[in-house]
């Protein structure tokens, strides 16, 4: 008998797709309903533009070149945001791995760094913008710093937590295999790497938020910068497609990480015999 419910339930692919599409359909219908209603009341309404209006505005916007630089604004924005994302995520991930692994593996370092990390992680970056201006220049630097701050502390705490959850037997085993204290950190790294990727995947929404906020602090190009400039005009016919682009990047990164975990770390989700 096949289980229809419960966390081991096997659902055929077509049912999965159908179930997945229903909420989107519902959201689209709801949007269309309210958009139409608003447009009847006020044909100039920009709060909920119609889909065709969004399509036309966006395709026009994508083709348009900036009158001063002569470049296509949309691609400049996309490029800037992607660079900030890659830089911010990689710096946060690599540094968090380094600090997290050492703090998780060596109690002395843990005692040194964890209190300050715990305190700093509680500070919302947006609340200390004047201080951040002193650390980084407005523009790319601040966007990257924001992404870094959003991600770094969460990851460090999670890495330390995951290392502490490694069964003690495995630590003992390592020493009986002749591992040094230094090797302990290295082996711990390999054991938790997929877990940290998983954690990164789950914490990605923090990154999108940080990217948008960071870009308001003086980035001249960027998806977030454009959204906030256009917000002045309530130009949702371009803002919504921009959000769609961000969503697409988000979904790609999300499934990209999932793909890496599945391919490279098959043992992590190891279920199948």
């Amino acid at each position: 008998m096949r289980f229809r419910f419960g966390n081991r339930a096997q659902i055929p692919l077509w049912e999965k797709i159908l179930l997945g599409v229903i909420p989107f359909l519902f959201a689209a219908l709801l949007y269309n309903h309210f958009a139409t209603q608003r447009l009847i009341e006020n044909p100039r309404d920009k709060v909920l533009p119609s889909v065709s209006k969004m399509y036309h505005s966006m395709s026009e916007f994508v083709m348009k070149t900036d009158r001063h630089s002569g470049k296509q604004q949309f691609f400049e924005d996309l490029k800037a945001s992607v660079i900030s994302l890659i830089a911010g995520i990689s710096v946060a991930f690599v540094l968090a791995l380094f600090i997290g692994i050492t703090a998780g593996s060596y109690p002395l370092i843990n005692a040194l760094v964890m209190p300050i990390i715990t305190v700093f992680s509680a500070i919302p970056p947006a609340a200390i913008v004047p201080v951040l201006f002193m650390i980084a220049d407005p523009g790319y630097e601040l966007s990257i710093l924001f992404i870094f701050m959003a991600l770094f502390f969460v990851l460090v705490k999670d890495i330390v937590n995951q290392i502490h959850k490694i069964p003690r037997n495995l630590n003992t085993l390592l020493f009986t295999k002749g591992a040094s204290e230094l090797e302990l950190g290295r082996e711990n790294l390999y054991m938790i790497l997929p877990g940290i990727l998983q954690s990164l995947k789950i914490n990605l929404p923090l990154v999108w938020f940080a990217l948008l906020y960071g870009e308001t602090l003086g980035a001249q190009n960027g998806l977030g910068t454009r959204i906030f400039i256009l917000k002045r005009f309530s130009a949702n016919d371009i803002i919504f497609p921009y959000i769609l682009v961000i969503t697409l990047i988000a979904v790609t990164v999300f499934y990209g990480i999932e793909f890496i975990i599945r391919k490279r770390y098959a043992w992590y989700n190891g279920d199948e015999k």
Binding site: V129, F133, P138, T216, L217, G218, Q220, T225, F228, I229
Partner: peptide, 8 residues
């Protein structure tokens, strides 16, 4: 150069 909020 653009900055989004006057407070910033």
């Amino acid at each position: 150069k653009h900055m989004d909020l006057d407070s910033n």
